[in-house]
Amino acid sequence: MSPTSDPYSLIPVPPPSPDDQHDNAEALYIDMILIHNVLIVGFNSIAVNAPLVRPGDEYAFAGYSLACTELVHTHHDGEESILFPFLQTKLDMSHNQEQHEAFGSGMAAFETYMRSVQSKTETYNKEKVQKLLNDFADILVQHLHDEISTITPEKLRTVDQAGFAKALKDHEAYAKSHPGLFTIFPFVMVHHDHKATPNWPPIPAPLRWFARNIAGLRHPSYWKFAPYKFNGDVQVYAS
């Protein structure tokens, strides 16, 4: 996938501070940038590949696209139920929550159509996919960029740090307790540039092995649309 063909720009990732200066505030800030970039890479991949889907690959492409929106739901639900309520005690999170609502109906329409393609109750139409994607992704990607400015390390360091540490643990537990082991988990792995940031996501070695070798086996046809293989190599669907 050529970078010049991608409709949405990624969020710049700052270099990490030395370990003795790397605190919870910086960790969350960088983690948020990286997971937001995973989503943006996903939207770019859907946009680029939508016109290229070959006959017989419509079901797989629909499943791939729905894995992307499933990650959006899990990510934003965790923010709204755990992180934002805590941060709201010190910072203004209202604009982030308003933006969440702004793209909701458009993304729901996209999901409804993709489920219809999966069930073969509607025929795959590349123009319809592109329009439905643009209707929500334009707003959502802008939100993903905007949100980062509200959670800079400087701002996060102004909140109660004991409460912040607890909120981060609760958020991590939330993410682990939700389904998506064979959809969200592999989606993250094949939409992140592991050569640029090799130690992300910060998960234990056995779980990283599972992610690279097992998680993608449930729906192998989905991941041929992703920009990276599970070993980190670049791939192109249409090549």
Rank of each mutant, 00 (worst) to 15 (best):
A62D: 10
N44Q: 11
V41H: 15
A50T: 06
P55T: 07
E58L: 04
V38N: 13
V38M: 12
Y59T: 08
N44R: 11
I33G: 03
I46G: 08
G63P: 08
N44E: 13
L39N: 00
L39M: 14
A60V: 03
F43K: 10
H36D: 15
N24H: 14
E58P: 05
Y29P: 05
L52A: 10
F61S: 04
F61N: 06
P51W: 06
D31G: 14
F61P: 07
V53L: 04
F61G: 08
L28F: 13
L28S: 07
N24I: 00
S45E: 09
S65Q: 00
G63T: 01
A62R: 06
D23W: 05
D31L: 05
L34W: 01
A62S: 15
V53M: 07
E26Q: 14
N24R: 11
I46K: 04
G63E: 09
N24W: 04
I40Q: 09
E26T: 10
G63S: 02
G56L: 08
A47R: 14
L34R: 14
N24T: 01
I33E: 03
P51F: 02
I35P: 02
I33H: 04
L39S: 08
L28C: 05
V48S: 11
I33C: 03
A27F: 10
A25W: 10
F43Y: 15
L52M: 11
V53G: 05
A27E: 15
N37M: 10
